[in-house]
Amino acid sequence: MPKIRHKSTNKAQFSFGTLSKIEALMSQGHSMISAAKAMNTPFSSLQKRLKKNNSSEPRLGRLPVFAAVVEKVLSDRIKYLSSIFYGVTAIQIRKAAYQYAEELKISHNFDKSAKMAGRDWLDGFLKRNSISVRKPKATSINRITTFSKEEVQLFYRLLVDLMNKYKFAPNNIYNRDETGISTVQVPGKILSPKGMKRVGSITSWERRKNITLLCGMSAVGGFVPPMFIFLRKGMTLQLEKDIPAGTIYKCSDNGWINEHLFFEWLQHFAMYTKPSSQAPVLLILDNHASHTSLMMYDFCKQNNTHMLSLPPHTSHRMQPLDFTFFGPLKAIYK
């Protein structure tokens, strides 16, 4: 583990603001010694700074291996690679730092046997350059290449046109999405006796299966009772035990949504939202194939429901339910 060094000295307490005040006192006729005493600043430190015109923040300890300019080149490269979904690991940076120092013939105290910088250097480098260690989310190439400024601007232009034309009330603007929930929860850490060989935690099922959950939520927080889709041929009353009011349960051969089940959910949605010509409803959803059919179009047209599709492969950045509801739901469920 890196060493944690607590500061045990009163040195380097002054700041750039203190130096500015000292210079102001000296411009008023005070000597350097009297100005240093007035601001409780060591005279020798002040003399060195004024002589070298050094206005940087004071610091303790030895200087970093790399100069600030060299570190900036390295940190800019790290940030750029992260922005294009090719981020580097801490080990890779430590090895790169060692190679960098060797090629530039910079004196260093890195581990020559492992040929990489130490963890102390890495911690200091990250702190100095506003970089943190993060766990990335797996993102497909389709999502990376399709998510573009033009696609997003087109979506918002269509949204503005619909809002101007139909004047949707906030409680009539809905986002709809589905997600898969595993039947086997991931248990967290628990307390158990030392030396105990087997430590278990109860889960719903023995083998992992996904259950699809369909939700619809309005801009003001109102929601339509959800739909659950199970991977099975037929329903059983046991699955509907203790269900929330209004929830509907369906089955499919693969446990996912299909055109028939989406139409059933759309009827369920219309029953709860009660759209009318005076209060039309806007439904924002992804562009899954099950959502685009003549049957859906006719139903929405007859029931004053207007559907707006998110651009393809952009739901990971633009789907409200993913960020505000499904994420916290899965975290609590686990």
Rank of each mutant, 00 (worst) to 15 (best):
M235K: 14
P225D: 00
K241D: 06
F230N: 05
G234A: 08
R232Y: 09
M217V: 15
L239G: 01
F223H: 13
G246I: 02
G246V: 02
T236E: 07
K233L: 04
G246C: 03
M217I: 15
D242A: 10
A219N: 07
T236I: 11
Q238W: 02
V220N: 10
L237G: 07
G216A: 15
L231C: 10
I243Q: 08
T236H: 12
S218C: 10
T236F: 02
A219F: 03
S218A: 14
M217R: 10
M217T: 15
M217Q: 12
F228S: 03
I243K: 13
V224T: 07
L231K: 15
F230Y: 15
G246N: 04
K233M: 02
D242V: 01
E240Y: 00
G222Q: 14
M235D: 01
V220C: 13
G216V: 06
A219H: 06
P225T: 00
K233S: 14
L237H: 06
A245V: 04
L231Q: 13
I243M: 14
G216L: 05
L237P: 00
M227I: 09
E240M: 14
K241Y: 11
L239S: 12
M235R: 15
G222N: 15
D242R: 05
I243F: 10
G246K: 00
F230A: 07
E240K: 14
M217W: 01
K241F: 03
P244E: 06
G221V: 08
A245P: 00
T236Q: 14
G234N: 13
M235N: 07
G221T: 13
A219L: 11
S218M: 06
P244N: 08
F223E: 08
G222L: 15
A219W: 03
M217K: 08
S218G: 08
G234F: 06
I229A: 07
G246H: 00
G222A: 15
G222M: 11
P244D: 07
G221Q: 09
D242W: 02
M217G: 05
E240R: 09
D242E: 13
K241N: 11
F223S: 13
G216Q: 04
M235Q: 09
L239I: 11
M235W: 06
F228V: 05
R232K: 14
L239Y: 10
M217A: 10
V220G: 01
L239H: 12
V224L: 08
G221M: 13
R232T: 11
P244S: 10
L237I: 04
G246T: 01
G221S: 12
F223K: 14
R232E: 12
K233Y: 04
G222R: 14
F228T: 07
P225N: 01
G216P: 03
P244Q: 09
L231M: 13
Q238K: 15
I243E: 10
L239D: 11
Q238G: 05
M235P: 04
G246P: 00
F230R: 06
T236W: 01
D242M: 06
T236N: 13
P244C: 05
F223C: 11
M227W: 08
E240A: 12
P225Q: 01
P244K: 06
V224F: 03
V224C: 03
F228R: 04
I229K: 05
G234L: 10
F223N: 04
M217D: 04
F223G: 07
P226S: 12
I243D: 02
P226K: 05
